[in-house]
Design a protein around this nucleic acid. Structure first.
Lengths: 190, 190, 190, 190
DNA sequence: GATGAATGAGGGTTCATTCAT
DNA sequence: TATGAATGAACCCTCATTCAT
């Protein structure tokens, strides 16, 4: 009973997610989603309050996947520097394991009139943990004392760009090593 | 007569450009542009083949502005490293001088179904010069031997992010220095 | 079991009635009603054949309330004139006692495609008694010999308008007296 | 050129007006109107900002018709009482001359979410003149000292009801006389 | 060159109703 | 009895584009 429900709900989320990743968030329409799922368009409104809600739930689901991936990493006995390095590696690993997800999150953040920032939904930040790490790193004197957004920009854009190259689709720490060094050189205080 | 023509053409380009910068490329509609310019909607099709053409011409105009800014910089007697450093500084200067333009170019590149990559128009690359510099730098052993796209990603994203902060709206090389070092550390071979 | 049944049925009627009174009959939807009652939408179709049936039953329930209010008034030993005057006062009293009900009846009568006149349900007239009184009054020569609908129009519209003013929400025969005289002057033969 | 424009505009107004009169304001849809006019639905939005605007313009057009009818009547050298009596007769005449119009105005006023009171359009009152007359009449001691809305209610509802009867479709002051007396008896101070 | 008119397609949303469970 | 699921139709509105003038 509820299973059917959950299944359709998941299907809609998945298809929408895929659509965002391949065509961009602005190209999502309830009609397209419904056709791909194989249901009638109005059916969408049984599972989601409106289109914005659908997109928001997609974001939340990606966020959950991401946070699950990072869950086991919360060892606080490491140095800030080590934690951040571990985070970057983990993010790289995540990006190869879930190729679409990072793109989906990015798309939802940059789309015009993003539901994430509409004020209609509570905004859950996907970068809270790493942003904190960066701030701590700056305060501890191990990271460059510039706007943390710049560190973030580098980490996410480089990893997204690197893993979006089909040649780098598989997780391979050795191959990634020089890219990691590139990122780290940008972040760390000289 | 011709002047009037040129004027309207410029106006449409300017308004569209502004619209892209403030609301995003996906929010541009011929209706909106026409209303803002104060002409009738169909009038746009006198100056542009279709909407994609309009966006493409906007891109070309931004490209021209950018290339004009970089024109005097083509001194080949500098080392690759020096040329690239000069380019970055110039790009920073350009971003402060033309706040909207970099955003417009970026928006047109990432928009869904971008006319730039539709195949209907010849693609003029705005990063050709710097990409060549980077390739030369890698070959010369002064830059990190990774995919040049990564160098590009860092240069453009960091500068765009930095200058999009209103606090950094004015050109100030001293204030920019640590950000420059951040970028350069990422690029240069250790 | 039956009690539960009756309760839900009553609830639906009550909520719908309230919705009609506050937002107008055209604004009633099964979705809204169901949400307000706290049941699922399809549940409504257990108690009512369709939406028209629901509205019709609401009408019948209001009619019953109204007729109950007028029940004790059927003393035929009064003169026609006295009976009609008594009716008007009673109607005024009813309107203050059941503010919503008169509005609901009026709304259901004037709504487009009113189920009351669709032919799908037997039409029970809420003005049968008073219409008869008026006809008798005309025949007896105490009321103006014009279309009785005009007498009715005056009685109902004036009382509805008067009592819809929050300042006149409470039953107060003294305050109502001049309004009564206004109505009566319109009805009675000079 | 402009003629065509004006014609379609008028057509849309006329058809919408007719639709309101026959089916009720709540039954108006842009699709229905467009089909009746013989144009595509989106065409409506060339002539009107949105549906509310359409309804509002219909109201304004009816108002203009009405005010035109009453224009020549502004003789201020008559007594208040005579002016009001003249107004009532004129209203009766108007109602027979423009059977639909009074109904349309009434419909637009009572419809749920009426654009007239949405705040999106300036509200032009169709009863301003007569309301002032009534207030003056009360102050002068010739009309009953009750809420002027009650006088209004009687005037408009009785005339609307009377003229909506096909038997009274033609303008006939003699036949109307007793109805006039009925109204006047209600209004005038005893 | 300029515009008003026209339109078909598509988008988001609500609704009354049916049906299997 | 109760409900979740499903749907087709309708509704309002925007848009890119074409065409006659």
């Amino acid at each position: 009973m509820k299973k059917k429900n959950e299944e359709k709900y998941r299907q809609i989320i998945t298809i929408t997610s895929h659509l965002i990743a391949t065509e961009g968030a602005a190209m999502v329409s309830t009609t397209k989603v419904a056709n791909l799922v194989g249901i009638s368009q109005s059916n969408i409104y049984i599972y989601f309050k409106n289109k914005d809600d659908l997109l928001y739930q997609v974001y939340l689901s990606k966020l959950a996947t991401m946070q699950a991936s990072f869950a086991q990493m919360q060892k606080e006995d490491l140095s800030v520097s080590a934690q951040l390095r571990a985070y970057i590696m983990k993010l790289y690993q995540f990006a190869t394991a879930h190729p679409e997800d990072m793109r989906v999150i990015a798309q939802l953040k940059i789309m015009p009139n993003s539901p994430l920032f509409s004020g209609n939904f509570p905004f859950k930040d996907d970068t809270k943990v790493v942003r904190k790490l960066i701030q701590a790193g700056i305060q501890a004197g191990v990271l460059r004392p510039v706007d943390p957004e710049l560190h973030l920009t580098i980490i996410f854009n480089v990893i997204r760009r690197y893993t979006s190259n089909p040649a780098n689709a598989d997780y391979d720490p050795d191959q990634f090593a020089p890219v990691f060094e590139m990122i780290w050189a940008a972040l760390k205080r000289e």
